[in-house]
Simulated scan of single mutants.
Amino acid sequence: MRSRFSVRKFLPTPLPPSDIRGILEDAQAAPSNCNTQPWTVHVVSGAARDALSKELLKADEEKRFSPDFSFSYADFGEGTYLDRAHEHAATVYQSVGISRSDQASRYAHARENLEFFGAPHAAFLFMPAFGDGVRAAGDIGMYAQNFLLSLTARGLGGIPQTMLGQYADTVREFLDVPKGLKLLFGISFGAADLAAPVNGFHMGRAPLEQSVVLHDTPGVLDER
């Protein structure tokens, strides 16, 4: 868990089918509300991966955004969450030598999401529209964490990508997915290019004191 990180540059070599099946079987073991297992996962590789990437890039150029779920930095409000998001963005761009004022390079780097950062495979995680969607989305998150940890355990890597979910209609049409299934996000995966500077940093995590409140649970936050 502590060695996992989001890979932003992959080697192009496809994974063996046995590895992909093992990763999917590990992910399938995730818990879910009432054992509904509400995930439908589409994996693209090879020619399908390349063709879908072209469609996503075209949709981005034409500003055909079609997210099933909203995303905006403004939703983070002022303070802790927005500060963390800004720190993350600054760290990523600094790793590849892009300045804050270089908007063209920032945009070009963001579009690498739509090329799956060079990964040979990408998985798209769809969910049914149960109620307000929160419980199903939580289940998808646990599935995705299993998926990512299985990659790490095999010496591989992945990255969950909100940006892939911004073009849900494009993905649904290309993959022939029913409209009733909503795209939460995608995961690009494969072998990490460990020589790439963008893979040379790991984002830190907040200390427990910032996120955990203990009640009659003494000693947990004592200094070691």
Rank of each mutant, 00 (worst) to 15 (best):
L24M: 15
V212P: 11
H109L: 15
I187R: 09
L114N: 05
S70C: 00
S188P: 15
V7N: 03
A85K: 14
F116E: 04
V212S: 00
L82Q: 03
A59W: 02
P17G: 06
E112D: 08
E61W: 05
A74Y: 12
V7Y: 01
Y81T: 05
F185N: 01
H109D: 01
A108W: 00
L181W: 09
A90H: 07
E115W: 10
D26I: 08
G77H: 12
S105Y: 00
A196L: 00
A27F: 06
R205T: 05
V220H: 06
A47D: 05
G133K: 12
D83F: 10
R84W: 14
F201M: 02
T217A: 12
K9A: 14
A191Q: 15
F71R: 13
T162D: 02
V213Q: 12
G155A: 08
F5S: 03
S53T: 09
V220Q: 04
Y167T: 02
A59K: 09
R111D: 01
G219A: 09
F76I: 07
Y81D: 01
D169M: 13
L57G: 07
A85F: 13
H88S: 08
S95K: 10
Y73A: 00
A206Y: 13
V44Y: 06
G141D: 01
V171K: 04
A30H: 08
R8I: 09
P14Q: 09
L164M: 06
D139L: 09
F5K: 12
L57E: 05
S66P: 14
P16C: 12
V7F: 00
R111S: 12
A195C: 01
T217H: 07
D26T: 11
K179C: 05
S6M: 13
L221V: 02
V212H: 00
P38N: 03
D68N: 15
P14C: 05
R84P: 10
G190Q: 02
T40F: 14
A29Y: 00
T162Q: 13
S188L: 06
T217G: 01
P17W: 13
P197F: 04
F117M: 04
R8W: 11
A85G: 07
Q37I: 12
F147T: 01
V134T: 02
Y107V: 12
S72G: 07
N113R: 10
P197M: 03
F130I: 03
S6N: 06
E25V: 15
H202E: 02
T152E: 08
S6H: 08
D83V: 13
G22L: 07
P67N: 02
G186T: 06
S211D: 00
F5I: 09
G219V: 15
T13Y: 03
S188M: 09
Y93C: 10
F116D: 03
G97R: 11
V212C: 06
E223H: 06
P120F: 04
L52H: 09
I20R: 11
S72M: 06
V43F: 01
Q28N: 11
K182M: 01
Y73F: 10
G138D: 05
L24V: 06
T36C: 08
A110N: 12
S101Y: 02
F69C: 05
F185A: 01
P16L: 15
T162W: 10
H88R: 07
G180Q: 07
A110S: 13
V198Q: 04
